Amino acid sequence: MTTTYAALLRGINVGGARKVPMADLRTLLEGLGLGAVRTHLQSGQAVFRADRGDEDTLAAEIAGAIETRFGFGVDVLVRDHAYLKAVAEACPFPAADLEARQLHVTYFSGPVGPDRFTGIDRAAFLPEEFRLGDRALYLYAPDGLGRSKLAEHLSKRRVNKDLIATTRNWNTVVKLVEMTGE
């Protein structure tokens, strides 16, 4: 059975470092035997179809191919359409009423529980808030991610120290659901 996935690459094409041109990424994925490859933006999203492997196996295969081709390691998460759609539908914030720059999802390589966030004084960051999903964290940052004190605090606390984590704004979350559902 063929499944449609999104590959989320962490930290490429940011500030001129770790460049991975999207045309080259598409060619690389096609060379791995993945089908119907498309990319979204320059910040590391690719959609493809595969009839083999699981999310973790595909992520490792893609990460290895990127390191071989480009000479540097990249963290890769792979998620299927059903999961991406479930994350979007489970959003605990009123996404339709917010600007895309105000709402973000951090996807994790494994489950995240509340114990990772013990000791965070949530009231100190209001009106910014975060809520947890199973392998996702929803962040409401009314002034955007770049000005978010909570996002900065979460990254400094290294709550994801043993997990791969990558964040996407709400427009990208919705677009990936759309692209993987086609």
Rank of each mutant, 00 (worst) to 15 (best):
P111Q: 14
F93P: 02
D121I: 06
L132Q: 03
A95C: 03
D134T: 13
P127S: 06
A136Q: 10
Y138K: 04
E99V: 03
V112I: 13
R101N: 08
S109C: 02
F130D: 10
C91M: 12
A151R: 09
V159H: 04
R147I: 01
G133N: 11
L137H: 04
P111H: 13
I120V: 11
L145V: 06
S155F: 10
A124Y: 05
S148E: 08
F125Y: 15
E128N: 01
G110S: 15
E89R: 09
A88N: 10
V87C: 03
R116L: 15
A123C: 08
R135K: 07
N160L: 07
V87R: 09
S148Y: 05
Y83W: 14
G119I: 01
Y83C: 04
V105L: 00
Y138I: 03
P92M: 02
A100S: 12
G144T: 05
A151E: 06
F108D: 03
K85Y: 09
E99F: 13
Q102E: 15
E128K: 01
D143I: 08
G119E: 13
R157Y: 11
A123S: 10
A100G: 01
T118N: 01
A151H: 13
D121R: 11
A124P: 09
H104K: 05
D134L: 11
R135G: 11
N160M: 04
Y83D: 14
Y138P: 07
R122W: 00
I120R: 03
R147L: 13
L103T: 03
D134V: 11
V159A: 10
H153S: 14
L103Y: 05
G119R: 08
N160V: 09
H104Y: 15
R157G: 08
C91F: 15
A100Q: 07
P92I: 01
P111N: 14
A90Q: 03
L126W: 01
V87K: 00
E152Y: 06
V105S: 02
L145W: 15
Q102K: 10
E99K: 15
P127T: 03
A123L: 05
L98H: 00
G133M: 12
T106D: 00
Y107K: 09
A88I: 08
A86W: 06
D121M: 12
P114W: 12
L98T: 00
D121S: 11
R131A: 10
D97W: 06
G113Q: 06
Q102R: 09
F125N: 06
D121N: 15
A141S: 15
R157W: 00
P114D: 15
V159K: 06
G113I: 05
Y107R: 02
